[in-house]
Every structure is written in structure tokens, then in C-alpha cells.
Amino acid sequence: MRHLMTVVVTAILVSAVWIFYGNITRSPATSDGKVAPAGDKAVVRPAGEAPMVLAESVTVGPAGLAIPVAGVKPSELTDTFTAARAGGARRHDAIDIMAAQGRVVIAAAPGTVEKLYNSVGKGGITAYIRSDDQLWTYYYAHLSAYAPGLHEGQRMRRGDAVGYVGYTGDASPDAPHLHFAINRMAPGERWWQGTPINPYPLLAGRSANR
């Protein structure tokens, strides 16, 4: 009799465990703090905050910077930092990341949106994001549009959407791309100032052109 009772109690406990586990694994993960699939993206719902959509195609380079166009691989980058512009009057001081118009442009590093500016005839629709330590400014140009709701003073995380690849300003409609620059900032320097450094080796992990 005692043996029979032990078997019955064990069976009840095991069944309860499997029912509980099954409910968890079958329940859609859409409540606060959960992640739910959404095609080729993940919808993240932090507790107490609005959902965030993060592209799964974010690639991080050797220096910890995300390649600022979603889906672009390090091997697809070209070093155009020293290329001549304006008929040789000036150096490019940035790299052009070629991509289809409308491809998502993302923040290469965390920081704060310092300036949103439409530089007609030059960089077109542009964004300047200053790093948290105030030492660097990341410049995104020739955008077709900003990401919805993007505004000056907004805190950005690496991988957050900045805008979309385009050809505004002096870029060619036949070659939409992101003009991406990094500037080293001295104390007191404004968003349009700074000393340019080459983003290519930081993103691609290869030596810069000489």
C-alpha cells in the first residue's frame, strides 16, 4: 500500500512539472522583458519601456564600432579616406559605404545626437553623434531621411537606427551611399570641428591606404 501511494504521488508531481514547463515553452514571449521574433528582426520589450526593433545584421568591427550600414560586411568596405575631392582641392577625410538606397544606417557607437543638419549641396541630410566621453564625433551624411523620431539630444546606443542610405547633398543618384567620418574632438570644439581619423581600419580590421 505504501509503495502504491509513493508511485501515485510521484506521478502527480512529474505531471505537474511537465504541465508547468509546457506552458512556459509554448507561451508567446511578448510580455515585458521578453523577446519575440519579427521576420528578420527581434522586437525587444524592456520592462516599462516602448518596444525597440534591432536589426540582426549588425556587424561589429575590431575596434568595437558597428559598421554603420546594416548588412554590410567588413570585406565590402573600401578605404576612401585619402581620396581627392573637389578636383584635388581637398581630401575626403571619411569613407563611403556603398549600399542600396533605403538601407538602414545605424549608430556605430553609443553617444548623443548633437546636431541634425541639412547641408544643401554638400552632405545633404546629416547627423552628428558625440561619444559619451566627448572625445569623438561620428558623422553620417547623404541620408535619404532620418529614423522616425530622431532628435537632437537623443541618447543613442550602438546599433540604434540613425536614418537611411541615400544620395542627398552632392552625392550621385547613381551611387547611393553613407559618407561616414570620425573626428577626434578637443575640449570646446563644436560639432563641425575636430580632427578626422580614418574609420576604415577600425571597421574593416585591415591597414589603411597610404
Score class of each variant (00 low, 15 high):
Gly33Trp: 12
Ala11Lys: 00
Gly33Ser: 12
Pro74Ile: 12
Arg85Val: 12
Ala186Asp: 14
Gly194Thr: 08
Leu77Ala: 10
Val72Ser: 08
Ala99Met: 02
Arg103Ser: 10
Arg90Thr: 15
Asp132Val: 15
Phe81Thr: 02
Val35His: 12
Tyr138Gln: 08
Ala175Lys: 07
Ser119Cys: 13
Pro62Leu: 11
Pro187Gly: 08
Pro201Arg: 14
Leu13Met: 11
Asp133Lys: 09
Arg157Trp: 09
Val162Arg: 06
Val17Gln: 09
Ala171Ile: 02
Tyr146Asn: 10
Val53Asn: 02
Gly61Cys: 11
Arg130Asp: 12
Arg190Tyr: 03
Arg103Glu: 04
Ala83Val: 05
Ala141Gln: 04
Val53Arg: 11
Pro187Leu: 05
Val14His: 13
Gln154Phe: 05
Met1Asn: 11
Tyr140Gln: 01
Asn198Arg: 10
Val35Gly: 10
Ser119Thr: 05
Tyr21Leu: 15
His179Arg: 01
Tyr146Lys: 07
Ala36Pro: 03
Met5Val: 15
Tyr167Ala: 08
Phe20Asn: 10
Lys115Tyr: 03
Ala63Arg: 07
Tyr200His: 13
Pro148Gln: 07
Arg157Thr: 08
Asn118Glu: 15
Lys41His: 12
Ala16Phe: 11
Gly159Lys: 02
Ala16Ser: 15
Tyr138Arg: 04
Glu189Asn: 07
Ala171Tyr: 00
Thr78Arg: 04
Arg190Gln: 10
Arg158His: 03
Phe20Tyr: 06
Glu114Phe: 04
Tyr167Gly: 00
Thr30Pro: 03
Val120Trp: 05
Pro68Glu: 07
Asn198Trp: 09
Trp191Ser: 12
Ala108Ile: 04
Pro62Asn: 11
Asp160Ile: 02
Ile182Lys: 01
Pro28Ser: 09
Arg130Thr: 15
Leu178Val: 01
Phe20Met: 05
Trp191Cys: 08
Gly33Met: 06
Ser27Tyr: 02
Arg85Gly: 10
Tyr167Asn: 08
Ala107Val: 03
Met185Lys: 13
Gly194Ser: 08
Leu54Met: 14
Ser75Ile: 04
Tyr138Leu: 09
Ala70Gly: 03
Arg155Val: 13
Lys73Thr: 08
Arg157His: 09
Thr112Gln: 08
Ile106Arg: 01
Tyr146Cys: 03
Trp192Thr: 09
Ala66Cys: 10
Gly194Cys: 09
Ser31Phe: 08
Ala161Ser: 06
Gly153Cys: 10
Arg210Gln: 04
Gly87Arg: 15
Ser144Lys: 01
Thr80Arg: 04
Arg2Ile: 15
Leu54Thr: 09
Arg210Leu: 05
Asn23Pro: 07
Gly123Lys: 02
Tyr146Thr: 00
Val69Tyr: 06
Val7Gly: 03
Arg155His: 11
Leu4Ser: 14
Ile197Gly: 09
Gly153His: 08
Asp160Arg: 05
Ser172Ala: 12
Ala84Met: 06
Tyr146Leu: 11
Tyr200Gly: 07
